[in-house]
Design a binder for these strands. Structure first.
Lengths: 260, 260
DNA sequence: GGCCGTAAATGGTCATACCTTGCTTCGTGT
DNA sequence: ACACGAAGCAAGGTATGACCATTTACGGCC
């Protein structure tokens, strides 16, 4: 800590007005997108890093906390603080959206419509760009659905993977992230009601339609098939007891999820 | 603090596992979406609130910081901490997306495509639902563009307002928020290059096409007009010098912005 | 050589003090 | 009586230091 290693952590210039902890956030952000800190990297211990940046530990912690809240950093007690390693597709934390939903009283219908628009857009792009590998995976998942008609939970797994494969083959990670953000919120309230299977066969059929449209590189058909699929899913959904977007799980889980 | 006022701040149950500060976040979130704290409200002073929740001030501050980072709370030194008052449409902070962009090296083309998909979806919905008021506003903004052909900055103002009016008339605040999130990032790098006007007349024409499609309640035409518009905007955009998504402004500004 | 325990490393929490900034109120001057 | 300004108070921001909880890693023991 005394001398050597890296001096890439320059003590922050007080000129950058604003509060000190904001300065820390700025410093860390710049280090990240300058490539000095890359996904998966571990930050120096808080005590050291605080000295290196010339701030106190609480102030540094405040900055880290801010970045952790938006999903860029992750701290594990006893282990260290890490730049989030997104192994799969990049993902955005859905808790801000969830908060906004409760703050403004969004209906689940509105949320569902947003998801539908995003899924349709993604399906359209996927129809233009899906590679052979992607389509093979989709076909497998569809087959998996047919094979799981008696096991709703297993069916749901294939369902989610199918939608994520579509997102992946859209080639647009931003849309994918946004779609997952919305889908996650819907998913969290849905997973509890999955037990009561609702016409899994029809659902599998519709997924197959989507797959075939993508397979034929027909964006319009893909969009339409996705539209039909989600419309029916919503209708089945609406038959269940009232779903509140209100009771979000306590912790702002960041997981991805897409449902039928 | 001793007795009376409100005891809606119940000391948090330690049962909810996780770290203490996460518990604080949970408490505050639930208070918000239970309606005990509403937009614009001011939280009790940190020292009091810490006692009420049964945690120390640093821990409480950590929780507040997390919520502030995602744009739900805002603290002003000397004044207090407030639940963010969103006067206009709800908006999501774009800094997480910006961070994700630098983390994964998103190209501006990808960002642009995401925006196009969102704008097309929104335009389609707007064509189905826009009210007379909305359309009147759109018409005014289009007129404003024609009137500002010699003043790029003024033109841009009308441009932004036009797109936001479309978003508003889509009736889906979630898609609107997501669209603004993406548009903001593009906008921030664009506002610097606005000075060099590029075919404002053509741009105004295309906006008029969009308007007319919406006016005629023709979703497909609206989507297509928006598509053409953004394709051309992107082409003009690509002619400029290399735009880096990298140099985001130091502070994670939360403003809304949509450009042509 | 593999397994388990202990110790060091590291983030999480707490208590306290002091500084900086807004806001408010009281006093003075016009 | 009104207006302006200065002082005091309130509230968030930062710093210091200590201790707790957990994870990791090293080393001894079987």
């Amino acid at each position: 800590m005394t001398s050597a290693n890296v001096d890439m952590f320059k003590t922050l210039d007080p000129e950058h007005a604003g509060t000190t902890s904001e300065g820390v956030v700025t410093q860390l952000r710049e280090m990240i997108h300058r490539g000095e800190l890359r996904p998966g990297d571990r930050l120096p211990p808080e005590r050291d890093l605080a000295k290196l940046l010339g701030v106190s530990r609480p102030t540094l912690r405040a900055g880290i906390r801010s970045l952790a809240a938006v999903g860029v950093l992750q701290s594990r007690q006893g282990a260290g603080t890490f730049v989030v390693k997104s192994d799969g597709p990049p993902s955005l934390d859905s808790s801000p959206l969830r908060l906004m939903a409760s703050l403004h009283g969004f209906t689940s219908a509105e949320m569902f419509e947003a998801r539908m628009s995003l899924e349709m857009a993604v399906a359209g792009l996927a129809a233009e760009r899906a590679t052979g590998d992607h389509m093979a995976t989709m076909a497998e998942e569809v087959a998996g659905m047919y094979a799981s008609l008696g096991d709703p939970e297993q069916f749901l797994v294939h369902d989610v993977r199918f939608h994520q494969t579509i997102a992946a083959s859209s080639g647009n990670r931003i849309l994918t992230a946004l779609m997952n953000m919305v889908a996650t919120i819907l998913f969290e309230t849905r997973i509890k009601t999955v037990k009561r299977a609702t016409d899994l066969k029809e659902s599998a059929e519709m997924h197959r339609h989507i797959y075939r449209a993508i397979r034929e590189h027909n964006p319009e058909a893909a969009r339409e098939a996705m539209h039909d699929h989600l419309i029916r899913a919503k209708m089945a959904w609406d038959l269940e007891e009232p779903h509140d977007l209100e009771h979000a799980p306590p912790n702002g889980s960041n997981g991805n999820g897409a449902s039928s």
